[in-house]
């Protein structure tokens, strides 16, 4: 099957905005992603070393007595994201096992970069109380000053670092 072209960014912007609006209206919450990763980490830690989680006030503060960290709205939302992404990719002929990279980098190096960038973002998202979806997008649409500060800094960080990793992408 031929891969379809990606949709127009402006129309997709409106579509994404309407999904966010639906989430606001129906649930009173924004969209999220990194919070779910945090809950996965918490659930894993809690099943391997519950004593450690108890002793860490930051982690313990996120646990609810008698409730799994995975029993949360965000986990189900992220499950939906995975399904939605898969269905969209499949129906557009883009579902294939591969590694996305620029022409001048090896697969191995690319995967290491992906992992380390992910680790940085996981830490940053905790510090900023959310990631691009939960903080920048959702908070930004609700006029939060902190969300806009965060969003501007994402672009600053990205542009500042782009030169140093150009071999990976160009």
């Amino acid at each position: 099957m031929e891969e379809k072209k990606f949709a127009n960014p402006y129309l997709m912007g409106i579509a994404l905005g309407l999904v966010l609006l639906a989430s606001f209206l129906i649930m009173g919450e924004g969209l999220g992603a990194s919070g779910a990763a945090n809950r996965f980490a918490l659930a894993a830690a809690d099943s391997v070393a519950p004593g450690y989680v108890e002793s860490n006030p930051y982690m313990a503060g996120k646990l609810t007595e008698g409730k799994s960290p995975l029993d949360a709205w965000l986990i189900f939302e992220v499950l939906g994201v995975f399904l939605g992404g898969a269905v969209s990719a499949y129906t557009a002929g883009r579902m294939r096992r591969r590694v996305i990279k620029g022409p001048r980098i090896s697969v191995r190096a690319r995967l290491i970069m992906a992992l380390s960038g992910g680790i940085l973002m996981g830490m940053a998202a905790r510090l900023a109380r959310g990631c691009t979806s939960g903080q920048a997008l959702s908070g930004g649409a609700l006029f939060s000053v902190g969300s806009w500060i965060f969003m501007m800094m994402i672009f600053v960080g990205g542009y500042a670092m782009a030169y140093f990793v150009r071999r990976q992408w160009l």
């Binding site: 996305i100 970069m113 992906a114 992992l115 380390s116 960038g117 992910g118 680790i119 940085l120 973002m121 830490m123 940053a124 998202a125 510090l127 900023a128 109380r129 990631c131 691009t132 500060i149 965060f150 969003m151 501007m152 800094m153 994402i154 672009f155 600053v156 960080g157 990205g158 542009y159 500042a160 670092m161 782009a162 990793v165 990976q168 992408w169």
Partner: peptide, 13 residues
């Protein structure tokens, strides 16, 4: 947090 997330963004893609 924004700065570090932006750096992680361009590293991981």
């Amino acid at each position: 947090g924004g700065l570090v997330l932006g750096i992680g963004f361009i590293i991981s893609g």
